[in-house]
Design a protein around this nucleic acid. Structure first.
Length: 429
RNA sequence: GGAGGGAUGGCAGAGCGGUUGAAUGCACUGGUCUUGAAAACCAGCAAGGGCUAAUACCCUUCCAGGGUUCGAAUCCCUGUCCCUCCA
């Protein structure tokens, strides 16, 4: 949600900025609705004022024992007028909200112009992709040798699910543990356990609803009808974690809040038929360790750099080659003002693939969620900035480890930092 | 499964249907006092919105949504969450 001040006072700027990310909306219609809203809101409030004053007068008259009949006469048709005005205002407000909630965030000035992911700009490369002197396998072939089973998962659930058994299952757990330990012990995040089913308000807060419901798994309680009961499986821990502070006013001394959470993530992957059908890259259910920070608005872009480095730190410790990319305006997510993607080298695909996405949302989510702080300078309640990033996507990290650490005999070497989590073994044979 | 009790400002906690947006305490902010601090005393202190050059003023909000009423924190209904008891 953009600032209403901006929408009302500087709509041309908004339109121009949104054009950068290929989003256009009907300014004339919006302005028309806004103008109507003003008029009707003033009318409604005047009527409410009238009712309040009259009612008070009746109260006073009654207290002093006067006849209140004539006064009652005066307000006889007020109720109906007020109801009409209120419902007109309400209809208008719903229409305006619908438009406003569908407007994406404005890109930060430092975000490069572009149409699609092809226009994203590589900022740096770290590590050298390893040369293999034998015929490479991808994680699917290697995984089948060590306990990854897509066929069984298809029987249990369907496509885009997986069953992992044995050492690789443990390796995934080791990766998770390692990431959580590192972020809590070294980077100062607070480990957080959260619900995996969330209500519509939470998803509206972070921006997945109302626009992207098709990307989500929606549940309903057995025998229950109606939207109010619907819960959704989380597409990322960002949703429950950021919503921890929904509707709160934080103290300056509490900031920044730094949460790390490991959760499964559930995505319908509607619209991605045929993409990444092989392997673990694109699943309906996958594990992720998520970093979330709630920051003072003044230094949120420093926080974005820091948070991205925290994610990069995991890749470095795992000695996985990666590159850092800044998303162009056309590829930026709906709620984000600026996003860095980290892409890990996958020898099986001979390509860099996204393993972390780190974003600053500025006040976009905070306004939807009413996340505020008392600014000690202004003494006002002001919106905070929210940020998050994967630290990392565990399923994809497992893929990266399997492929980058493979040996000629099909065995997989355990990265040094994980050996302690794997009972000291150095290889999965 | 059934029966009760509760939800009020940052926190605790009052609140006969009528100047109650809400007593009081704590916390917080400013001031007096003090060499400084504490204590004491005085004052201030909810959020969102409208209108405005800005004050002023106005509207909304006492869990949520409906209802009764000229008027609802207060009465009624539904829901959510918390607590107690019974089977």
């Amino acid at each position: 949600m953009l600032e209403s001040k901006l929408l009302r006072g500087n709509i041309d700027f908004v339109v121009e900025q949104l054009k950068r990310r290929n989003f256009s909306f009907d300014v004339a219609e919006f302005n028309k609705l806004e103008d109507q809203r003003k008029v009707i809101q003033v009318q409604t409030q005047d009527l409410q004022n009238l009712r309040n004053t009259k009612s008070k007068a009746i109260g006073q008259a009654k207290a002093s024992g006067e006849n209140i009949e004539p006064l009652l006469e005066e307000v006889s048709d007020l109720g109906e007028k007020l109801d009409n005005a209120k419902s007109a205002l309400n209809d208008l407000q719903l229409k305006i909200d619908e438009i406003v909630m569908a407007i994406p965030n404005i890109p930060h000035p430092s975000v490069p112009e572009g149409q699609s992911e092809d226009d994203n700009i590589e900022l740096l490369k770290w590590g050298e992709p390893k040369k293999f002197d034998f015929e490479l396998k991808d994680h699917v072939d290697l995984g089948e040798m060590h306990g990854i089973d897509f066929a069984v998962a298809a029987k249990i659930s369907g496509s885009r699910f997986v069953v992992i058994t044995g050492k690789l299952a443990k390796l995934q757990r080791a990766l998770t543990q390692f990431m959580l330990d590192h972020h809590t012990e070294v980077n100062g995040y607070t480990e957080t356990y959260v619900p995996y089913l969330v209500n519509a308000d939470s998803l509206t807060g972070t921006g997945q609803l109302p626009k992207f419901e098709a990307d989500l798994f929606k549940t309903r309680l057995h025998g229950e009808e109606g939207e109010a009961k619907a819960l959704y499986l989380i597409p990322t821990a960002e949703v429950p974690v950021t919503n921890i502070v929904r509707d709160s006013i934080l103290k300056d001394s509490e900031l920044p809040l730094k949460f790390v959470a490991h959760t499964p993530c559930f995505r319908s992957e509607a619209g991605s038929y045929g993409r990444d059908t092989r392997g673990l890259i694109r699943q309906h259910q996958f594990e992720k360790v998520e970093l979330v920070q709630i920051s003072n608005p003044d230094n949120s872009y420093d926080v974005l750099e820091e948070l991205t480095e925290h994610a990069e730190g995991i890749l470095k410790l795992l000695e996985l080659p990666y590159r850092k990319v800044i998303l162009c305006t056309g590829d930026l997510g709906f709620s984000s003002a600026k996003t860095y993607d980290l892409e890990v080298w996958l020898p099986g695909q001979a390509a860099y693939r996204e393993i972390s996405s780190c974003s600053c949302f500025e006040g976009f989510q905070a306004r939807r969620m009413q996340i505020r702080w008392k600014n000690p300078q202004t003494k006002e309640s002001e919106f905070l900035h929210t940020l998050n990033g994967s630290g990392l996507a565990v399923g994809r990290t497992l893929v990266a480890v399997i492929e980058n650490y493979q040996n000629a005999d099909g065995s997989i070497t355990i990265p040094k930092v994980l050996q302690g989590y794997m009972g000291g073994i150095t290889k999965i044979k």
